[in-house]
Amino acid sequence: MAPVNTASLPIYRISALTKIYGEGEAAVHALRGVDLDIPGGEILVLLGPSGSGKSTLLNILGGLDRPSAGEACFNDTSLVAMDEAALTEYRRRHVGFVFQFYNLMPALTASENVELVSDIADNPMTPEDALALVGLSERADHFPSQLSGGEQQRVAIARAIAKQPTVLLCDEPTGALDSVTGRSVLKVLQEINHRLGTTVIIITHAAATQAMADRVIRFGDGRIQEVFVNDTQLDADQLVW
């Protein structure tokens, strides 16, 4: 499949985005008026300390949380204005999620775990094709307990991409992995971006990951501290941390 040429178009437009948890003196200001355009087809890396707002932003973009104020649009459609049914449809059609913990069903094989998602998608890959894309064709009939941590995370990625989402949202996808295994997982994400044109947004504490990104956003105290664009990107297997 040829990559989709969406690089010049913002897939997300975010303006004055604010998220407050709690009230009064106990209120936590997770996002403080964030403005950001995210071009389609890129790899975007979000860096910053714990509590800086990265995961809150990702959850809002993924339709898992709602802002307290401000706007977030996907392809010029307001996520804020969507009701719960519309958000569910948005997640089903457009968003794949990858988390630090793999959340695989232990009683199902790798292929069956991927099939859980492909069964509900409009235009899914077959589990075989999705597992082949992450280099696990030969492990399709293995259960999670028979797979290494890196292999389990690659199954989780295959599950996320089987429905061919527009966006892949990754929250610390290498957080539970050693550096060698982490690079192999990041290489898979890079391949998905290059081959399918999927927009990939990665939260990470591994600062070296920024070298593989098209665009890097640094967060601090609920605000964007810095945005920079890489003129060249390293292959993920060249990263060192």
Rank of each mutant, 00 (worst) to 15 (best):
T126C: 01
G33V: 05
L44H: 08
H142R: 15
G70T: 12
L168D: 05
Y12L: 00
S184D: 08
T166K: 11
T199V: 10
V98I: 15
R32D: 11
C73R: 15
S55V: 03
Q210Y: 00
A160M: 12
R93G: 00
G53C: 06
I201G: 01
R215M: 08
D76N: 15
M105T: 14
V28I: 14
L44Y: 00
L9E: 14
I217P: 00
T198V: 15
T77L: 12
G70R: 11
E71K: 13
Q146G: 09
L9Y: 08
R139C: 10
R32I: 02
I157N: 02
P3D: 05
D83I: 12
T56G: 07
T198R: 13
A236S: 09
M125S: 13
L36T: 12
C170K: 09
G96W: 05
G40A: 08
L116K: 05
T126G: 00
Q190D: 09
A27P: 06
L136Q: 05
A30Q: 01
M82G: 09
V98H: 11
T232F: 05
L234W: 01
A207T: 14
S184V: 00
S145V: 09
G222E: 02
H29E: 12
F228K: 14
C170Q: 03
I38Q: 04
H205L: 01
I38W: 03
V114R: 02
L58D: 03
S8R: 08
A16Y: 07
P39G: 08
G96D: 14
V180N: 10
V28S: 11
G70F: 04
V98C: 13
I14V: 14
